[in-house]
Amino acid sequence: PRPVRLLAPPEPIEAMALLPDDPPVMFLWRGARHRIRRADGPERIAAEWWRRDGEPRDYYRVEDEAGRRFWVYRQGLYRPGVAALWFLHGFFG
């Protein structure tokens, strides 16, 4: 499933995950905190094999405590000592 509404471009969020490859348990977007109740993923989306630029994205479908559903992703692969970059890409109906 894909979101009904996409943000163009995706907006940066501050996210906290228990393990590097886990979905976020909480994220902060536009000053609002969203505690995650349910998550599904990751779904890895990478650039086409013939393109050398672009990092893979690990997408998660998450639902917060209020029942709002979001499509978020972590950009790039996990690297020790490097903070993960997270983005909000869309909203589910």
Rank of each mutant, 00 (worst) to 15 (best):
V4I: 09
V4R: 09
R5S: 11
R5Q: 10
L6I: 11
L6H: 13
L7I: 11
L7W: 08
L7D: 08
A8K: 13
A8I: 13
A8C: 11
P9M: 03
P9L: 06
P10T: 04
P10N: 07
P10V: 07
E11L: 14
P12K: 10
I13P: 02
I13S: 02
I13H: 02
I13T: 03
A15K: 03
M16Q: 12
M16N: 08
A17Q: 08
L18D: 13
L18H: 10
L19R: 14
P20L: 04
D21W: 06
D21I: 04
D21G: 06
D22W: 05
D22H: 11
D22P: 01
P23Y: 03
P23M: 07
P23K: 02
P24C: 02
P24D: 00
P24I: 05
V25R: 10
V25S: 09
V25F: 02
M26S: 10
F27H: 04
F27Y: 03
F27R: 01
L28I: 07
L28V: 05
L28M: 11
R30E: 12
R30D: 07
G31S: 04
G31Q: 05
G31H: 06
A32Q: 12
A32D: 05
R33S: 06
R33L: 00
R33D: 00
H34C: 08
R35D: 14
I36P: 01
I36E: 02
I36D: 03
R37Y: 03
R37L: 10
R38G: 00
R38Q: 10
R38D: 07
G41A: 02
G41T: 08
E43A: 09
E43P: 00
E43R: 09
E43D: 08
E43M: 07
R44C: 09
I45H: 09
I45F: 05
I45A: 08
A46D: 14
A47R: 13
A47P: 15
E48K: 15
E48D: 15
W49P: 06
W49G: 13
W50D: 15
W50G: 05
R51V: 14
R52G: 15
R52W: 14
R52M: 15
D53Q: 15
G54E: 13
G54A: 13
G54I: 13
G54K: 09
E55I: 09
E55W: 07
P56H: 08
P56G: 11
P56N: 10
R57Y: 05
R57N: 11
D58C: 08
D58I: 00
Y59K: 05
Y60W: 14
Y60R: 01
Y60G: 06
V62K: 04
E63M: 13
D64M: 05
D64S: 04
D64W: 04
E65V: 10
E65Y: 00
E65T: 09
A66I: 01
A66W: 08
G67A: 09
G67K: 01
G67Q: 03
G67N: 07
G67S: 07
G67L: 04
R68F: 03
R68P: 01
R68D: 14
R69Q: 14
R69A: 12
F70M: 01
F70V: 03
W71I: 02
W71M: 09
W71P: 01
V72P: 04
V72C: 04
